[in-house]
Write a protein that binds this DNA or RNA. Structure first.
Lengths: 221, 221
DNA sequence: TGACAGGCTCGTACTTAGTACGGTACCGTC
DNA sequence: GACGGTACCGTACTAAGTACGAGCCTGTCA
């Protein structure tokens, strides 16, 4: 879809890169496919980004920019739920971003802003400094790890679960993996099952525990 | 390091692939570098694996095979701690595996065995089926997500923390990111800080919460 | 024992990817 | 109307995945 009218820019390049990765995975994102999508030749891209690595750093930051920020000063639990749900939804739309997180150590401004807002919200709610760091690491671990698992699922929504799970079960011997088979037949194949529901559950458990930690430290709130 | 003596095999290929990825990241793992390491020409590899994708699937399973399995029948909390610590340690040694988890949907036998043992341990300890699924998703999320964060750290151990953090702080304006700066100066730069310690903390919080869930369900234990 | 078959290895070459190098067209300024 | 900078492009080099077919080694059966 070449758009000859608009001039190229770093923003346009990154936006197009995100769109390509969404459509065909990170593997589909090449300097040539990106140039094609922008109606341009590959080498033109290098006037707006230094190299492909910078594009990868850039699109990770674009992904962070699409997550809703928590608001320091609001009810901390509500803000953390809002942030976690938004982050998970965004990572689900851009699953390739999770793999990039691991290899990128140069966070962009949106990434920094995101973490700053999260930490700020906890601090404002009365979490002591060290506990804030602990809780931040804990919540981020949960969100990222859930996204990893969700991306690795062979099915992508509640619709295809039954079909895919039955296919997998045919290749899983109950002798070799009795408990996996039990979970698949007795839990996953139940009507109404949706892995996404696990997110709310786990998040609630974690936040309850965190609330307990806060209460121990500042009994007055 | 060519080893002309031993014959090629799928196992040897995968082991060498893991070693190369450990040394130079996933980017350093090419059919040519792999062949070189085995003292062989690239095309010889294709008699033991179908293609590079199968190698990637294979090394993920190798990584899982190196994690300590929980023992069904043992004290569930102790087994979960053992498994989580082992999994995190392994993922820290092979950080490239985290990125692969997201793109691989064909789990190998070691991966299946790992999950089966984990689920089995929870079931044997009295966790009902649905709660087992919830808890399994929760614990795996925490472990994977922590590994993601650990891999994305700009420093790799407690030794380089101070130096690297000070470098970063020079580029972080306290006006733009006040809470990040506060955490960095007031927590990270404290002597004795080690991000790895966050793991134990968060794991304890999660397991305490899980123990509460189990107690609610089977008050008799 | 000699011929054959099957499997392992390799040489060559094709395709796709990232990107260095230099050219060109357009634009505003003096 | 000459000049310089910016954005874009054509070409080409290198690295990587892998298809194709040829050589070699080994074990088997006549």
């Amino acid at each position: 879809m070449p758009k000859p009218g608009a001039p190229l820019s770093r923003e346009r390049v990154l936006r197009a890169a995100v769109a390509i990765a969404d459509a065909g995975g990170i593997g589909g994102l090449t300097m040539r496919s990106l140039a094609d999508a922008l109606g341009v030749k590959p080498m033109s891209l290098y006037h707006h980004v230094a190299n492909k690595d910078e594009i990868l750093d850039g699109i990770v930051d674009v992904v962070f920019s699409r997550m809703e920020l928590p608001t320091p000063g609001g009810d901390w639990r509500h803000e953390m739920v809002k942030r976690a749900n938004s982050a998970r939804a965004v990572l689900r739309r851009h699953p390739w971003a999770i793999g990039l997180l691991e290899s990128r150590t140069a966070p962009g401004p949106a990434t920094l802003r995101h973490h700053d807002a999260t930490i700020g919200t906890l601090r404002r709610a009365g979490f002591p400094l060290a506990l804030t760091a602990h809780v931040h690491a804990l919540l981020d671990s949960y969100v990222y790890g859930f996204a990893v698992q969700e991306a690795a699922l062979p099915f992508s929504g509640p619709d295809s679960v039954t079909e895919v799970t039955e296919d997998i079960l045919e290749h899983l011997s109950p002798d070799d993996y009795p408990h996996l088979v039990e979970i698949a037949t007795g839990h996953v194949l139940r009507p109404g099952y949706d892995f996404a529901d696990e997110f709310e559950f786990g998040l609630g458990v974690v936040l309850d525990a965190v609330a307990g930690l806060l209460a121990d430290v500042s009994p007055g709130s």
